[in-house]
Design a protein around this nucleic acid. Sequence first.
DNA 1: GGCAAAGATTGAACAGTGTTTGGAAATTGA
DNA 2: TCAATTTCCAAACACTGTTCAATCTTTGCC
Lengths: 234, 234
Amino acid sequence: MPAASRRERHRAQTTAEIKATALKHLVEEGAEAVALRGIARDMGMAPGTFYSYFDTREALLAALAADAYRDLAAHLREARESHPRAEQGARALAHGLAYRAWALAHPQEFRLLFSGRGQTPRADTADSTEAEYELCLGIVEIAATAQVADTGSPYTWTDFDPAFTAVARAAFPALTPATLALSLRVWGRMHGLVTLEIDGLLRPQIDDPDRLYRDELADLVRALGLTERTGGRP
Amino acid sequence: MPAASRRERHRAQTTAEIKATALKHLVEEGAEAVALRGIARDMGMAPGTFYSYFDTREALLAALAADAYRDLAAHLREARESHPRAEQGARALAHGLAYRAWALAHPQEFRLLFSGRGQTPRADTADSTEAEYELCLGIVEIAATAQVADTGSPYTWTDFDPAFTAVARAAFPALTPATLALSLRVWGRMHGLVTLEIDGLLRPQIDDPDRLYRDELADLVRALGLTERTGGRP
DNA sequence: GGCAAAGATTGAACAGTGTTTGGAAATTGA
DNA sequence: TCAATTTCCAAACACTGTTCAATCTTTGCC
């Protein structure tokens, strides 16, 4: 492969700088404060120059969201893999705790990913969906090892998005539609308390959401039939 | 009480008209499309006139949010009370289903209530917190009648907001800190899947979130020890 | 090296936005 | 009727995202 030309390198560098200053504004003042002109001002460039690098402000936010998605997925995978594959309860617990920990450490990015993204039908960047899939696959792994009786409704592969099921079945050959549905429910259960807390609806009423979330996670792991032997009982 | 003066009536009417057109813009195009000047244009008034009725745009959105909160709380209460007090499983199920149904019927209002409201420390209007309390109390009622062994962590009244616990204990004298914590967990469990769906993160992967949510609710009711006898088994 | 083509950058402009302000008009209580 | 309070308008200010023609800079090629 030929080395990138001078212009391409400069372009990549400027793109990175735009994303970096935009990210700074994002984490400090929220998504609404990510202003084109503010970024241009910080970088000492004319406002119009921005459009040589991103089609629109929304595209920049989508790029930031894709990065955040990747970062979150990496953190969750890291948390799971900090326990051996045999101890699935501990892996599930670590995943759940890492989900909240990342959200608390990056509240604005968490909001960018999960709040208000629904009205615009979400820019389907290739690597955006890729990161989204990896995040889902993490929960699929948890659900796949769960020991639960089939829960009520029967599911078929046709109930799910073909592209997603293809990726999921490739990663977990023994997967069934029921456990795929279960994985989405597990995600929802982890997401609920975390998003309530991030959106400020838990804190006013309870002082320590940490214990609340830990209780919920413990109940979840128990309900999934995953004995959590985090301690040293042999 | 003296009848409202002519001016007061006119003021109330104009305030209502502002809120009405703002609500129209909200449900049709989302919260970001609620523009002062657009409202003024629709009503045929100068932009500055708006500030005789609301201090700021944010105050208008807060008022809209308070109304939405009241509407949601009313719907949930109505759903619960459609079943006799003895059948707590059915009441819990109805509450959960109504939560999602309202969100699907009013997605923009749901987003206004629960998304992005966290960064600004929320305008604490008196009736806003009142409606918020009523919503919480509905879940407290569910948790209060649950038949579950105490879940792990011990809780004290000091773990919660005094104002909130006062209202909750007034409504349910036999309440314990543990069940108050449980009620927040129940809320989180209902909220998770619903907010994921509203934010468009469920739909791309599963076709019918309805069944998924029903399964989750059934599992929740079962876990709470509330036998759901919705059918006609005598 | 010189040169046309492509790309990056500029600064001004356009159409929006929320908000402030001074003064005119209207409504009020006395 | 009169003064005081409140509503309303029009214009302005300081922003925002986006577009556009005109420059300056780099690139590939002869």
